[in-house]
Design a binder for these strands. Structure first.
Lengths: 192, 192
DNA sequence: ACGCTGACTTTGCGATCCCTTAGTCAGCAC
DNA sequence: GTGCTGACTAAGGGATCGCAAAGTCAGCGT
């Protein structure tokens, strides 16, 4: 648990998660489609998607606002928005300004707004990287003005560091059975 | 603040961040190098980097463990680890098992472990996507056994939703001056 | 009717990501 | 010293990402 040890080559040690139950034998569990991190990255794992969501969170709605503020080309903005639409992250709704034809504005869905912790966590992490600090943004709580950050917390309200976390398979009995079924269909893979 | 409105085409409304101060004129501020989200993504914005960090958090240390468990090819695992090393996210330290030559194991640095909220936020978000739920992982607090999630919180301890958040430029006076300096060097861009 | 503008779409290209296959290289085992 | 293994490295290729430039298309202005 020795955080903040920048004192030379002495390294951090095994401050990692505890693997519980059958997952302790990590190699027995290949992450075909069940890793939620990978699933998430398949949908928003691209830089253009992330920065578009960023601008939508900042309140941009019109196509040219989003393209300009993200510094993406029209083509990328267009195809990414189309994909975000298909994935249920943004919705399009018509609007019409007086003397203009009907256009569409883009707004985040609930699923899109649920990316707020992801973006905040990335922003926090980017803080400690090289680069300009003063020109950057500060995100605060409108109520009290205090700066915000993304933290990992358990349902009981405790803040959880990496070494205080444990990972286990959700429905272990089912997962073991599913693996057995898969093994009958195809020859055994990792078992030897 | 109408969360969870899946009732048809009625959309969510302007549940977005408030832009304060000079940042309210969003178009006046191009995100050249100061956006921490983009800086973060330049370093870990790739799927292979993310899944390697995931495995390191799960406790993997040896090269072949990491390559096998991430399902990445040796080549990708190798070059990504090299890059993570250069970026200060992992450290390599020699170890030697009896009757073996010296090898290296990979461990996260503090900066690497600081990605825990990012990965947790992604995992949370991936929850609501299509796909298998039962085979998935559950991350809990070792102390009390409760499941963990990533939340956005202010320094005063309030949980902050998107529409309760505000963004402003950190050092606004400096940023305005810096922009003026830049404008002298090159012809005005967005002003007219 | 003609041009202009805002909102895209299409096209063609280079860069990056990730894969497979094949090779290297250090030390044991024999 | 020959073979083997674990840990890489290199080479070549397909897919995806992102860009610039050009094209489309609807309506307003004249």
């Amino acid at each position: 648990m020795n955080h903040m040890n920048d004192d030379g080559p002495e390294v951090a040690g095994p401050d990692v998660m505890e693997l519980q139950g059958a997952f302790a034998r990590r190699d027995d569990w290949q992450v075909k489609g069940w890793c939620r991190i990978e699933r998430a990255l398949d949908v928003i794992g691209t830089k253009s998607a992330m920065v578009i969501v960023r601008e939508l969170l900042y309140g941009g709605t019109k196509f040219d606002e989003l393209a300009r503020r993200t510094q993406l080309s029209d083509a990328v903005a267009s195809s990414r928005l189309k994909q975000l639409l298909a994935d249920g992250i943004v919705e399009r709704r018509p609007y019409r300004e007086p003397g203009q034809r009907t256009r569409y504005e883009y707004v985040l869905t609930d699923r899109g707004r649920a990316l707020f912790p992801v973006l905040t966590a990335l922003m926090d992490w980017g803080e400690h990287l090289e680069g300009d600090r003063r020109g950057g943004l500060e995100v605060t709580h409108r109520g009290c003005g205090a700066p915000v950050s993304a933290v990992v917390r358990c349902a009981e309200g405790h803040e959880v560091s990496v070494d205080e976390a444990a990972a286990r398979i959700r429905d272990e009995a089912w997962a073991v059975a599913a693996r057995e079924r898969g093994r009958k269909a195809s020859p055994p893979a990792v078992d030897n």
